[in-house]
């Protein structure tokens, strides 16, 4: 029975796309244009060279419904510069995902510094800069850990946050799906 592909399946989900693309100028603009032209959102995007300098790897976190995920997958595959597209639900246990974060926290007395240092230890985070007024905490982890760390640091006064965006990889030998 004919059903509108844009109705139904409107449950909100979130996918992580790994995209291997040719490492040349303009490719990022093509990928970004694919989203903006259709009004789709990007929650985070990270891009860097892979083990092969001619290939870049993009990790894109996309919120939306099933039809959006299906169109994103097809449209990414359609780009001439795209070599491989893989996507997973963010809840999928077959992938490992990590994000790095730098947090500048207000720390203007010794007690606060000690407490922040303890919090950092619990989260296996590092203090990478110390000034009279503030500290910079560096942490790596999945979304849950990053979120919890930020909550713990919140009461001290977060001055600045820089996040790398998520990078992810499938477990096991190959991520081919």
């Amino acid at each position: 029975m004919a059903t509108n592909a844009n109705n139904g399946n409107q449950e909100f989900i979130r996918h992580i796309f790994f995209v291997l693309v040719e490492n040349r100028s303009g490719v990022l603009a093509r990928v970004a244009g694919l989203f903006s032209a259709r009004g789709y959102n990007i929650e985070s995007l990270s891009v860097a060279e892979t083990e092969n300098p001619q290939v870049s790897r993009m990790t894109i976190v996309v919120p939306g419904d099933r039809n959006i995920m299906s169109q994103v997958r097809k449209q990414l595959s359609k780009l001439v510069d795209t070599l491989e597209v893989h996507d997973f639900s963010v809840e999928d246990r077959d992938i490992v995902d990590r994000e790095m974060i730098l947090v500048k926290v207000s720390a203007d007395d010794g007690t606060k510094r000690t407490q922040i240092l303890q919090i950092a230890n619990v989260y296996r985070a590092k203090i990478v800069n110390l000034s009279e007024q503030s500290m910079i905490v560096e942490a790596t982890g999945n979304q849950g850990k990053i979120h919890a760390l930020l909550q713990c640091l919140e009461p001290y006064g977060i001055l600045e946050v820089a996040r790398s965006g998520r990078v992810a990889m499938a477990r096991g030998i190959s991520e081919k799906t």
């Binding site: 004919a2 059903t3 509108n4 592909a5 169109q71 359609k78």
Partner: peptide, 11 residues
């Protein structure tokens, strides 16, 4: 011939 046309508007 275009996989992205499939189920784009109609399932």
């Amino acid at each position: 011939i275009d996989p992205s046309s499939i189920s784009k508007n109609v399932e």
